[in-house]
Nucleic acid binder design. Structure first.
Lengths: 224, 224
DNA sequence: GTTTCTTTGTACGGTTTCGGACTGAGGCGG
DNA sequence: CCGCCTCAGTCCGAAACCGTACAAAGAAAC
């Protein structure tokens, strides 16, 4: 099913062959279209996903005034609370950029984790990475202006999405950052004037990551 | 050493007797004075702490422009990255309100966790709780004004500090929230006008938690 | 080509917060 | 009692954002 050679998910790719063999029979390949919901806050979480490509958003307060807490791409997995002993999700998670992944049912996850300490360690590592990301988001939301937060977000998206074109409307970015839509429009203009991106209707193209990093003013940290 | 009857730390208190027996011989009672550093970002983490009373702050960017990511009291423990397989801390952690706790060396922690699955599960639960708190902080920092964030912070501190008097200067609160000091002064006045707190030089007294909750405008969630 | 819908750009007044500076008030030691 | 130091209160102009509304531009449908 999941041939080792073709695996792009960092977690799966870095498993020992023994651990991978443990999971492989239960990894179901799935298509992950735009807006596909992987998790819903307050609901029982029956499966986790390892993304091969595409990007998912972890969103808090989705019912009222949504704001993004973090993003997940092929560097990690969804369903972290399951690893921590919680049956229910805290946030909504849905696909922000379409892609593919592997779905693993809760029961199989628990079983596999109970059988291999090294597997559990590999998965818990994801939790650590995500916690680091969330920590940086706390800082960015607390001290940085829209323009810098947007630059950070675009860099994180660019890390996870194939190609330089990010298909995103201002409206959507505003939701992610928890700010006004015109605020995003203006921030995008600033970033374009800085030569980091070019605007297109319905998408943004990253043309100069280094400039974008400078414009993020220290809020961006690369994966790993 | 740590007599079960006297344990106030939620994690230790809720362990099975077997798990507690596993840890007990290695729990060293420690006094935790104000500003005592429990963890330093980037340094190897050689021990974890279970607080019995007092409160610790998890602070990011401590070297440059510090801002608080979360707080830890008797509901949890420090050193979460150790549980997740990381040897180094991501943030500074130091005592915000003095107290006592139990110190557990890394080696003993690893040993105990490897011997008991239920113990590991109990500790991982802390990670989940802390991640939830961090998630709420992302939201609060992203959308709420100083006054609301301050109300939230005071409630969390009140949850963890014995008595109603919180010994905190405006300067310090400003650092925690990542805002200007005069901003805190004004927010405190608003909260006092709202009848939720009274000001004293060098400390704040919570007189009406319910009003404080209202003034926090939905950003506060109780422990567990 | 015209209509319709989505997306983007712009404008306006008002609020929040900033950075910085300065004054006053409380507490402590000499 | 006096001086000193910390902490708290206030004020200033400037910047960042907000909520809202409306117009222009693109894309798609008819």
């Amino acid at each position: 099913m999941a041939e080792t050679a073709s695996l792009r998910n960092h977690v799966l790719k870095n498993l020992t062959t023994a651990d991978l063999r443990l999971l492989e029979p239960h990894l179901e390949p799935v298509k992950l279209p735009l807006r596909k919901v992987l998790e819903r806050a307050g609901k029982l979480n029956k499966a986790v996903y390892f993304l091969e490509d595409g990007m998912a958003s972890v969103v808090a307060d989705a019912a009222t005034r949504p704001i993004e807490v973090g993003v997940i791409g092929r560097e990690g997995m969804t369903g972290l609370p399951l690893l921590l002993g919680a049956a229910r999700s805290d946030s909504d998670i849905y696909m922000q950029a379409p892609g593919h992944g592997h779905c693993l049912r809760e029961a199989q996850l628990r079983l596999a984790v109970s059988q291999s300490d090294t597997l559990r360690a590999s998965l818990l590592c994801c939790v650590h990475v995500f916690l680091q990301q969330t920590t940086r988001t706390v800082v960015a939301n607390g001290r940085s202006k829209i323009e810098e937060r947007l630059a950070r977000w675009l860099l994180m998206a660019d890390d996870r999405i194939d190609g330089d074109e990010l298909p995103l409307t201002h409206e959507f970015l505003a939701m992610m950052l928890g700010v006004r839509r015109p605020g995003v429009t203006e921030a995008i203009q600033t970033l374009e004037r800085g030569g980091a991106i070019v605007r297109k209707r319905g998408s943004i193209i990253v043309v100069d990551r280094n400039r974008l990093k400078k414009l993020s003013n220290g809020t961006y940290f690369p994966i790993n």
